[in-house]
Amino acid sequence: MEKIPILKMGGYLLVTIQVDLYDRLALNLESDLVNMINKHSSKGVLIDISAVNIVDSFMGRILGNIAQMSKILDAHTVVVGMQPAVAITLIELGLPLSGVHTALNVEKGMVLLQEKLLGDDTVITDDTDDNT
């Protein structure tokens, strides 16, 4: 059985999709990622789809699901490296991927994730400040 590897790096999980996705593989990735977030208490997930040639409505839904599931588990998801042709096709297909954070490349995606985590921390300190 094929499997998409998930790498743990500190508080982050990194996924690079290098193979042709079919539905079962995408569903397995979804459940594997959610399990890994839970196991390692990860705070951020970075999914690199720069090698993915097509994202159809099913794959789009899976990406949206991963973002929502990780959000419930207190982790942020950023999808990076989408090919321009894929972006155009997704919008024409009618799938705006709302709710999924995106960045142009892995580097910018990591910066975005770090900012989001810092943002979370600030919110927490702000709350305590208000209470005291």
Binding site: N53, S57, P84, I88, T89, L93
Partner: peptide
């Protein structure tokens, strides 16, 4: 072209599913 190819492949993927 790449864009037309991507659109065709995506449409094909939807229909085959």
């Amino acid at each position: 072209g790449l864009l037309n190819k991507t659109k065709l492949l995506t449409a094909a993927s939807e229909l085959v599913r």
